[in-house]
Structure formats: structure tokens, C-alpha cells
Design a binder for these strands. Structure first.
Length: 517
RNA sequence: GAGUCAGUAGCUCAGCUGGUAGAGCAACGCCCUUUUAAGGCGUGGGUCCAGGGUUCGAAUCCCUGCUGACUCACCA
């Protein structure tokens, strides 16, 4: 399929041709060895020490300022930008000046990837600069990059169109340094979490993404089909039930960074695929897990940001534990003045109406309480807050509360008005578990599309005996959003889900085969 | 799923109650050996998201569709 080329693309293709005609390979195969990076040079160069006198670095040409026989340019590598000084007679010591006059001045375009060799000095305006002695083209760029300029911290002509930024994230990352920064943070956050868990001696594991029965959460799944087995599979909505099987198998602590998939609405907090870290530790309970979560978040924030208070959405949020704790009933009473602890389904429905919380007939008691909480409490919890002791109806995998009738031993951690983590003392009584699943089936019949499936093998595992344990799920995307002060999940996912730009050609047949539904 | 807003040059955007498209940067040509949103002079570049309609005439008004953002609904 050919595409009409823009004026600038035509120029670049012509330049490419001319480069080849000069006998220069625009896409050379040999490696270009580098011994320095932009940021490191800018941080460590000193005029007195005269260090960095033989540097080799490579990156993208981001700016050319040509002044006749000498030029300044900007090179951007993975660490940042640095200015280059390119003088004609330096890179062309002999008679032939074409390397400067033709290749550098005319044929190299912004976006080209080059390698340079030279020494570092400071210009008379005080800018640390690489004085280039040798220059090599490493890869030609055939499309014009958006030109983003900056002065005194102000950015001009920023590349901002969300659609283009997400579809061409490579361009976004190239021209928007703060975008790059968020993703580096994400990686550091995950690394710190993994480090914390491994230091505790917990075992990192992997469990199936293709599951014959989906479970461990309440959500609509993606459905697919395996040809050889001629069998329906679901992309996991959670890995909880598999990790618990591993506790049955004798591991006493397991965790997994899991991509989960939920076939539901998309907004700035939800992407169809997202990442959760789930952790199960035997012989502990949810109280113990609250301490662990406090300790872990403190560790991560300290490790990644070097401090324990961050500005999130205009608020200062401290991750220094211990966090505030309320039971679910307490929190509702605190924010609405109404004590719902003794109410039945009918009374709750009336209260919901009074509070202008929308409900529908398929909702059971647990869901009604959750609606009230979600509407009247959750959005107002800014600092990290544990909400504990949830109604049994909405927590089919959690252990019954040791003292309080009708509740389970469960907590959620709310930060900045959103759920960040969810945990319980895990239900390990197989008979109780079967009854809970059966109650879910009932809800399913009432029209709750997210009611859980009955997983016979999971029950069988519990019947062999699972040690008492607590389990935790923590949303990595949400955590990254909070810690990087990002307004949308799209800012912390490299490639957020979007509609295809145009219907993929030839994809129709494939679609038919792989996608049931 | 509903509502609101948006889609114009490579990028960021102007374009009034309808008269046939503009700026800055980028590109191209020339000048310039310490510039940094470099500068000076000059030049080119458009499926105005797509398809219909109204009209003598549509980037502009109307309808449909596509894509995106936001809000709401849904989502423990």
C-alpha cells in the first residue's frame, strides 16, 4: 500500500539517496561504541579537571543551528540532551569539505541517529558542549519529528494531541522528556516492590493467563478458544485462585506481578489489561498484612523518591505509616452520619435512596453497602486509609470475621479517593467456600454479570487443606499514577488500549477464528 | 452505553454572521566560525477527518459516520 508522501518526507528520501551516492551507508551494521552519556557529562565535566577529552556518544540529532562554517547541534541520547559544536575544518581536515558542507549541513535531518567523537568544553555562554572531531550517520530518519522548543522552562509547540501521543508513543517519548520520566518511575516502583518482597524471602512465581474457569475477582472476562483442545479459555481477571493452590502445595509465601484482563468500560482509571501484584503469605492474617502494606509503601516511596511525602493532585500525601484505619461501617457513619450496621437489604435500599445513591434491583446487601461507600466515602479519602471489615456478601473469598457476624476480615487501602490495594484473611474452609460460590451463582441468576464461577478444582484443593493465610492485591498502574501524579492510566501505560486506526486488512478471517463471544 | 467538545500544512494553532486557506516553528534556497525558542533575506508546502445535503458558492450551516478527549453510567 503506498501512501502519499509529504513534502518533507520526499526531501528526506532524496537525502537518503544522496547519502548513498556519496558512498555512505545510511544504516550501517557495525556497532558504534559509546563511552559517555549526555547527562553524565553535564553532571561531571569540569573546566579545571579537563575530563571527558575523548568521548564517544550517540543519539538522535534534535536541533541544528548552522552558522556558515561552524554549527551547533543538539544530540539526545537515553540520558538526555547535550549540545554539539561542529566546525567545518575540524571534521574535514583535508581539502574535501563535503562531509560538513553536504552531509552535515544538507543531508542530515532532525531525528537522524548519529555517533560523534570529540572532546568536551564550555562555550563562552557557559554551555557544556561536545566539540566534534568525527561524525558518523548511524540511522537515517525518514519522517519529520515534531519540533518542540524550550526556553526558561517554557515549552513551545509541544507535541500534545493525545491521540497521536498514544498511537505513536515512540514519538511522544522522543520529544516529551517528562513522559519518559514517568515510565522510568514505573519501572523503579516495580523494582522496589520486587526488591522488598524478595528481601522478605517470598517466592516470585508465574501462573496461567489462559484459564478454563476465571475467578478471583468479579468482572466480565475476555473469552478465547484453543484449537487443539477445542476448548474455551478466558484471559485471567485475577490469579488469586492459582496462588492459593500453591499455598496448598506447600509454598508459604508466593507473589506474582500479573497482567490481568477485564472486559469492561475504559476510562482514566481503567484499561482492559492492567497489572496487579498479588501476594499470599501463610500463617498470617489481614491485620498482619496491613502492617506489611504500610512497610512496603514506605519502602517504595522512600527508595524511588528519597522522601515519604509526595504531592498528588494538589494534596500533600504522606506515605509514612501507620495509616488511618476505619471499619466500613465506621467510615460510612463518619461521612453520612448514618449507622447502617444493623440494617437489612430493604432498609439499605431506602437509605441509598435518601442519600441519592443509584441502585438497581440486582444488587444484594453487600453491593448496596458498597455503592453507598463508593459514592459517599471513597472519593473523600485522600491520605492512605485502610477500610476494614466488609460485608460477607461482597467478599466470597474472604474469611468470616473472627468476632463480627456478617462481616469478613478484609481491608482495602484507599489513596487519593481510589482503591489501591485489597486484601483479606483468606477463606480456607472448603465447605464455607462452596456455599459462598453458590451464593454467587444466585447473584448471577439475578443478573449480576460479574458474579463468580464455581471452581471445583479450587474447592478440591482447599479440601486437601490450605494453611491460614492473608492475601493482597495491589494495582501497579494505580500505584504508579498516584506516585507520579498522573491523571490518567494512559500516562502510565506505554501503549494504552485504543481502537485501531483503520480496520486491519486481512484481519477479518483471523478475528473470526480467535474471538468467540 | 449517553452527553459535551474537538479533528485545518510535519508540529502548535488562527480562519467572524458562507465568498474558495493563513501564522509561528519545521522544510527548501542564499548569507553567517561560540549559537541555544540563534539570526537575516527569499521560496514552496493543504483530500480543511470521511460521505451525503442545503446553496450560485461550504473549512464554515445541516445530517450520517470515523477517531479522540472530558463528564456521566458501568467497573468491589
Amino acid at each position: 500500500m503506498s501512501r502519499a508522501l509529504s513534502e518533507q518526507e520526499i526531501v528526506r528520501r532524496e537525502n537518503l539517496k544522496k547519502i548513498r551516492e556519496m558512498g555512505i551507508d545510511p544504516f550501517p551494521a557495525e556497532p558504534f561504541e559509546v563511552n559517555a552519556h549526555a547527562r553524565e557529562i553535564k553532571e561531571n565535566y569540569s573546566e579545571e579537571k579537563k575530563n571527558y577529552q575523548e568521548v564517544r556518544l550517540s543519539g538522535r540529532l534534535m536541533m541544528k543551528r548552522i552558522m556558515g562554517k561552524a554549527s551547533f547541534a543538539e544530540l539526545q541520547d537515553a540520558s538526555g540532551k547535550i549540545q554539539l559544536y561542529v566546525a567545518r575544518d575540524e571534521i574535514c581536515p583535508g581539502e574535501d569539505k563535503s562531509l560538513y558542507n553536504v552531509l552535515f549541513k544538507k543531508l542530515l535531518d532532525i531525528g537522524d541517529i548519529i555517533g560523534v567523537e570529540g572532546f568536551v568544553f564550555t562555550t563562552k555562554t557557559g554551555e557544556i558542549t561536545v566539540h566534534v572531531k568525527k561524525l558518523k550517520l548511524l540511522s537515517k530518519s525518514l519522517r519529520p519529528l515534531p519540533i518542540v522548543k524550550e526556553k526558561d522552562g517554557k515549552v513551545f509547540d509541544a507535541f500534545t494531541d493525545p491521540q497521536q501521543r498514544y498511537r505513536m508513543r515512540y514519538v511522544d517519548l522522543t520529544v516529551n522528556p517528562h513522559v519518559r520520566e514517568n515510565f522510568i518511575r514505573r519501572s523503579q516502583i516495580m523494582q522496589a516492590m520486587r526488591e522488598f518482597l524478595l528481601n522478605k524471602g517470598y517466592l516470585e512465581v508465574e501462573t496461567p493467563i489462559l484459564q478454563p474457569i476465571y475467578g478471583g475477582a468479579a468482572a466480565r472476562p475476555f473469552k478465547t478458544h484453543h484449537h487443539t483442545l477445542d476448548q474455551t479459555f478466558y484471559l485471567r481477571i485475577a490469579n488469586e485462585l492459582y496462588l492459593k493452590r500453591l499455598l496448598v502445595g506447600g509454598f508459604d509465601s508466593v507473589f506474582e506481578f500479573a497482567k490481568d484482563f477485564r472486559n469492561e468500560g475504559m476510562d482514566r482509571f481503567h484499561n482492559p489489561e492492567f497489572t496487579q501484584m498479588e501476594l499470599y503469605v501463610a500463617y498470617t492474617d489481614y491485620i498482619w498484612m496491613m502492617h506489611l502494606v504500610e512497610e512496603m509503601l514506605q519502602y517504595i516511596v522512600k527508595r524511588v523518591f528519597g522522601k515519604s511525602t509526595l504531592t498528588v493532585g494538589g494534596h500533600e500525601i504522606s506515605f509514612e505509616g501507620p495509616f488511618q484505619r476505619y471499619t466500613m461501617y465506621e467510615s460510612i457513619e463518619k461521612f453520612t452520619g448514618i449507622d447502617i450496621s444493623e440494617m437489612d437489604e430493604k432498609a439499605l435500599r431506602e437509605i441509598a435512596g435518601k442519600l441519592h445513591v443509584e441502585v438497581d434491583p440486582s444488587m444484594g446487601k453487600g453491593k448496596l453497602i458498597d455503592e453507598i461507600f463508593g459514592e459517599k466515602v471513597e472519593p473523600y479519602l485522600t491520605d492512605p486509609t485502610f477500610i476494614t471489615d466488609y460485608p460477607i456478601e461482597m467478599s466470597p473469598l474472604a474469611k468470616k470475621h473472627r468476632e463480627k457476624e456478617g462481616l469478613v476480615e478484609r481491608f482495602e487501602l484507599i489513596v487519593n479517593g481510589k482503591e489501591l490495594a485489597n486484601a483479606f484473611s483468606e477463606l480456607n474452609d472448603p465447605i464455607d467456600q462452596r456455599q459462598r460460590f453458590e451464593a454467587q451463582l444466585e447473584l448471577g441468576k439475578r443478573g449480576d454479570e460479574e458474579a463468580m464461577m464455581l471452581d471445583e478444582d479450587f474447592i478440591r484443593a482447599l479440601e486437601f487443606g490450605m494453611p491460614p493465610a492473608s492475601g493482597l492485591g495491589i494495582g501497579i498502574d494505580r500505584l504508579t499514577m498516584i506516585l507520579t501524579n498522573s491523571k490518567s492510566i494512559q500516562d502510565v501505560l506505554f501503549f494504552p488500549q485504543m481502537r485501531p486506526e483503520k480496520p486491519a486488512e486481512g484481519a477479518a478471517g483471523v478475528e473470526e477464528e480467535t474471538q468467540a463471544e
